[in-house]
Amino acid sequence: MSKFKQKSKGGAPKINTSSMPDIIFMLLFFFMVTTVMRDVELKIKLRLPQDISEAKKIEKKSLVSYIYVGEPKPQFQKIFGTEPRIQLNDAFAKLSDIQAFIEKERAARPESDIPFLTTSLKVDVNTKMGIITDIKQELRKANALKINYSSRNKPKM
């Protein structure tokens, strides 16, 4: 009988968890390498256009400044209304702020990089072209001529 006694005593066997940190670290490094830091908190509803077949991947993210355009999110609609608005960095902005914004972006980068600066327009699909045209005119005045209409699809390799 004593042969079987020990077995019934055992209960669930303990799982060795000593390699758990290694697994988690592996995951951690994977995410650290594949992702980028979230740069701004969006204050607008943003649904980027899809199925843009000729879209290209932006190679150097450090040379890109972003202009967001879209309808303010519900919590901001009381103050800013429902008309599409421009967001620069973390705040809503006026059209006249764009030139100053571009100047600031330029000042933050080495002079040799300035000709390669790109402005990425992240615009909600439901926006009307009126405001986009105004932004484009401001960008022309600021001599920021390289622009990128941001889209959502995966670029061709």
């Binding site: 830091m37 991947k57 001599n143 920021a144 001529l145 622009i147």
Partner: peptide, 19 residues
Amino acid sequence: FLVATTMDVDSGLMRRLPP
């Protein structure tokens, strides 16, 4: 890192404005 980062790749249609 899961919370603070995004995975999406920036892509879009490159255009050039006239001066």
